[in-house]
C-alpha cells in the first residue's frame, strides 16, 4: 500500500516525510529525517532512550506510529540547545559528569526537560520517579539526579 505523507513540525522546523503504517516515529526520525539523537534501546517502551516530546508531552517515540505525528509539534534532543547556548540541563549534565557512555543521555535530558516544565522545583524522589522510565546502566543515576536538581535550581533562579 502507498506510504503516508506526513506533515509535521520537528524542533520548530516544518518537515514532511513518507512512511509506512508500521514505521514508528523513532524510525521516521532516525531513518527518514536523519535525526539520530533519539536511540533505540528496546523498542518496547522499557528503556526511554527514544524519548521525545509531542505537543509538549513526554513519550517513547518507539511507541508512536510515524503517521500519528501528522500535524503535531515534535521536539527531540537536537532542538534542545539554542544556537551555541546549551540548555541548562545539558550544561549541568556536563558539569556533574552525569553521563558515562552517553547512550541514555538524550532521552534522559528530554525527560528531565519535560519534568522541569511541569514542576520547576522537584524533590529528589520526584526526579527519581519521573525518570524511572529512562534506564541508565553506567551511572547508578546519582549524578543524573544531582544534575537535574542543580539545573532546576539554576532555572528557578534565572
Amino acid at each position: 500500500m502507498a506510504k503516508h505523507h506526513v506533515t509535521t513540525t520537528v524542533n520548530g522546523d516544518p518537515v514532511e516525510y513518507l512512511c509506512e503504517s508500521e514505521q514508528t516515529l523513532l524510525d521516521c526520525l532516525r531513518d527518514e529525517l536523519d535525526l539520530i539523537g533519539a536511540k533505540e534501546g528496546c523498542s518496547s517502551g522499557d528503556c526511554g532512550a527514544c524519548s521525545v516530546l509531542i505537543d509538549g508531552r513526554l513519550v517513547c517515540s518507539c511507541l508512536v506510529l510515524g503517521v500519528e505525528a501528522e500535524g503535531k509539534e515534535v521536539e527531540t534532543i537536537e532542538g534542545m540547545a539554542q544556537g551555541d547556548e546549551l540548555h541548562p540541563l545539558q550544561r549541568k549534565f556536563l558539569e556533574h559528569a552525569a553521563l558515562q557512555c552517553g547512550i541514555c543521555t538524550p532521552g534522559v535530558l528530554i525527560a528531565a526537560k519535560a519534568l522541569l516544565a511541569k514542576n520547576p522545583d522537584p524533590t529528589e524522589t520526584q526526579v527519581r520517579y519521573w525518570l524511572a522510565g529512562n534506564l541508565c546502566r553506567c551511572t547508578g543515576y546519582d549524578k543524573i539526579v544531582r544534575a537535574v536538581m542543580d539545573a532546576a535550581a539554576e532555572m528557578r533562579g534565572a
Binding site: 517502551g45 526511554g48 524519548s51 513519550v59 517513547c60 511507541l63 525527560a111 524511572a132
Partner: peptide, 9 residues
C-alpha cells in the same frame, strides 16, 4: 502503568 513516557500515551 509503565513509565512517565508510557503515561503520556
Amino acid at each position: 502503568i509503565g513509565s512517565t513516557q508510557v503515561q503520556g500515551r
